[in-house]
Write a protein that binds this DNA or RNA. Structure first.
Lengths: 207, 207
DNA sequence: GCAAACTGAATGAATAGTTATTCATTTGTA
DNA sequence: TACAAATGAATAACTATTCATTCAGTTTGC
């Protein structure tokens, strides 16, 4: 661990604590993550979370927001990149979904830790609800354009978006649960296989 | 609630407590489920869980085993039913995956509550690991036979099994998270849509 | 036929252990 | 010296587990 200067900008400390929280949730689960774990993982003292986040609950919420923002921002950068064709945007979207940053096992563990509690804690859901909608809208519009451009008359863009999204959720779960012999590149190939069934002229030869 | 006779066979009490545990996990999450919650939901006294399960952890494990067994037994009954054709078995498999019993929101919440903790508790994983393998093997073999029977030369049965399985995991997550305007029949239609891309002569017209 | 003793399931008050939160004190810096 | 950030011992709240007691049904002895 790096040494901790006595004093740091609040933003740095908050990020440091969020990073430690991600590791603790991955290691001990949401229920098993204690303030003592988090602060000692960060190499700081017990009271510091309450100083920077007030409560444990708020730390958890900020942790979820952190990984949510990372995901949303990554996809926005692709969707609003004028230099990419529609086909390239879709490929970039899939590549991002199965990139190192997103399929990091600690972060996957955090996602599913929160999904497992959403029914009981509507707050968790509300953090993601609106941007999930936005991502779906954007992805659907890409499929829509590709349908026109490629003359895929029988494709249903809404259906393809729902199916692709569920598929990638399921593949992430596999990546989290399956211990070995299966990595993000394999998962990406499965996702591409599905897109190739819908847009054979665009994605059949992509690895 | 029904009145509780003072004394009951152990098996009945255990099942009664497991049912209550499922409801509590769905309502309060794994971390928020206390012995007091479970026993009061079951209409019994605080000490009874320790009497029948020894510890809270063992109650949770038996609860996971209960819903796992229910799922595995349902699929086994289909796979080993000699009266069904391969096509009928696959359709029955999908119908079961999106049946009332399996897509019950309380039970889905329990599944994902445990998935969210598996990385930290290998025990949870080990309960499911072997039968997940078995289910995959069986389903792959069905796809394999259908490939031959239907002359689907370019289908990869292993890939289709992985893809279908991930897809249904993701659709279950959607069913758990999405509050309204989307039900198990819709999810089933998405799964069927995928199978139709692989076996168009068998599943294109199935709802 | 009847009550007294026995049995084991069920109860819930008490206990022991854990953990989030507080805040008086310490420490480095300006 | 003054100040803000950080510390960690102490506190308060919560919760799993224990176990002496209660209770209803069954058996035994007369």
């Amino acid at each position: 661990m790096s040494e901790n200067p006595r004093s740091m900008p609040a933003k740095t400390r908050r990020r440091q604590l969020i990073k430690a929280t991600i590791k603790c949730i991955a290691k001990n689960g949401l229920s098993g993550t204690t303030m003592a774990d988090v602060t000692s993982k960060a190499g700081l003292s017990l009271g510091i979370v309450n100083l920077h986040f007030e409560t444990k609950e708020k730390l958890l919420i900020e942790t979820l927001r952190f990984i949510s923002d990372e995901y949303r921002n990554g996809l926005d950068k692709i969707f609003f990149n004028d230099k990419l064709s529609v086909e390239e945007k879709i490929i970039a979207h899939v590549s991002f979904d199965f990139s190192r940053a997103i399929t990091d096992r600690d972060k996957l563990a955090v996602w599913f830790a929160f999904w497992g509690e959403t029914k009981s804690r509507p707050t968790y859901m509300s953090i993601c609800a609106d941007y999930i909608d936005e991502i779906a809208k954007n992805l659907t519009s890409l499929f829509s354009i590709l349908k026109k451009e490629g003359n895929y008359t029988s494709v249903d863009p809404d259906l393809v978006c729902i199916c692709y999204t569920a598929l990638s959720d399921g593949l992430w779960l596999d990546l989290l649960l399956t211990p070995k012999g299966w990595d993000a590149d394999d998962a990406k190939a499965v996702a591409m296989h599905y897109l190739a069934t819908q847009f054979p002229n665009n994605f059949s030869h992509i690895r």
